[in-house]
Design a binder for these strands. Structure first.
Lengths: 140, 140
DNA sequence: CATAATGATACCATTTTAGTGTCATTATGT
DNA sequence: ACATAATGACACTAAAATGGTATCATTATG
């Protein structure tokens, strides 16, 4: 079972790298090489982050990507929702079957709570925290 | 994103039904009809639950399935792991990439914690609790 | 021995995820 | 002007996971 797909994973790591290279323009080509990711795939991902306003792109020679917002404001939850759709763990379960008229289904309630908790936790993980902690570890 | 797949969902609901029909032998055919599930699919699911020791089957005319263990001992976590494999949310993330030598990767730590929490919650949800609460609701 | 049930298992269909390829657009430097 | 090096848009393919079907074997009952 996957909470985080490869696309989201790539996005997180790519953003980590971009965040570290403060203001420097990053190209897909260079990033794909240093992170060992398929170039076309990474490109599609960065394009998506661009249209979502998280990255800012510049075209043409010397172009590439830079962060468009503060890395402290980019949460893993946000990235998950961009690449995996709205965060819904229990969507299809019990839909109109066993408890069609019962609003307060025990199982659904439990799942809803889990969903809420996970969402909260994912929202607390930001690109800034990830890169910062990585640095701390490296310096040891 | 799915925490619970259809198979697991079906299994939970089927077990709920079987748990309610104390000791009565339940056939795939009857259950599939009353729960409106594809018969062959449900059959495969019950067979699996049988080999896992959760149900007990009897073959031949008049045969079918009954619970093999106390419904209070059947957790949703257990069912998820039977039908969806071991519960691992963060398995592939960061594998040998950004933090290959760093044992204490912040992101991985966060995901591990979430995983632990979710597992704990899923373990607390049992078939007994689900059927019991459903009954309470119905009586209102 | 017909019937009605599960056991085992191979197979197919659908959906999701991963990844590629191509042509268009745009900015830069010479 | 033009070669070049970058992204934009998007169609397409490949692989994996999930959902579902079908068939033949086995077994118990009456």
């Amino acid at each position: 079972m996957k909470l985080i797909t490869k696309q989201t994973d790539y996005a997180i790591r790519a953003l980590g790298c971009i965040a570290k290279s403060k203001d420097a323009i990053i190209t897909v080509c260079g990033l794909a090489e240093s992170l060992d990711m398929p170039q076309s795939f990474l490109r599609k991902i960065l394009q998506r982050l661009n249209t979502k306003g998280i990255l800012k792109s510049s075209k043409g020679k010397g172009g590439g990507f830079v962060l468009n917002i503060n890395p402290a404001k980019i949460s893993v939850l946000q990235l998950v929702e961009i690449f995996q759709g709205e965060f819904k763990l229990s969507e299809h379960v019990f839909k109109g079957k066993i408890c069609p008229v019962i609003k307060t289904c025990y199982f659904k309630n439990r799942l809803d709570k889990i969903e809420k908790d996970v969402k909260k936790q994912l929202q607390l993980i930001t690109i800034k925290k990830i890169t910062k902690q990585d640095d701390l570890q490296r310096k040891k």
